[in-house]
């Protein structure tokens, strides 16, 4: 399916990932949107808040629940020029996680900085 990806318009896209990676399909289908969206050469930022921080957890193993382990795909985002990944500090701390538990390089930022990102964005996709 060929699609027109060059519009000449560049907007600030913000993907807000709020949910655990497994249990519902939202995180998985959000990632599919990010991957397709990467072809459109927009200014893309991803934030991970609440249980969404678990999406980036290292060493996920879904073999016992029979769902697809898509967690390794986050590491491929960098190659697609999706490089701005932010994680909310409070959400990480509340879940007993640190940067060392995460599978990709992220910037850990405050809730206020997340608010600022949301305010500055033009297109927000909230999963």
């Amino acid at each position: 399916m060929e699609e027109e990806t060059q519009s000449g318009i560049v907007k600030k896209f913000l993907y807000i990932n709020r949910r655990a990676p497994h249990g519902t399909i939202y995180a998985h289908e959000a990632l599919e949107t990010v991957l397709i969206g990467a072809a459109f050469e927009q200014d893309v930022t991803l934030v991970f808040i609440d249980d969404g921080v678990f999406q980036l957890k290292k060493n996920q193993d879904t073999s016992e629940i029979g769902t697809k382990n898509f967690s390794k795909t986050y590491a491929a985002l960098e190659d697609m020029d999706v490089e701005k990944l932010y994680v909310e500090k409070k959400s990480l701390e509340q879940r007993g996680l640190t940067q060392d538990d995460l599978s990709v390089d992220v910037k850990i930022i405050s809730s206020d900085q997340i608010k600022k990102l949301i305010n500055e964005s033009e297109v927000i996709l909230n999963f």
């Binding site: 699609e3 896209f13 397709i36 072809a39 459109f40 297109v123």
Partner: peptide, 12 residues
């Protein structure tokens, strides 16, 4: 159609 249609809706 594809997810590109969603991204395009964001852009346009």
């Amino acid at each position: 159609s594809g997810l590109g249609q969603l991204i395009e809706a964001g852009i346009q």
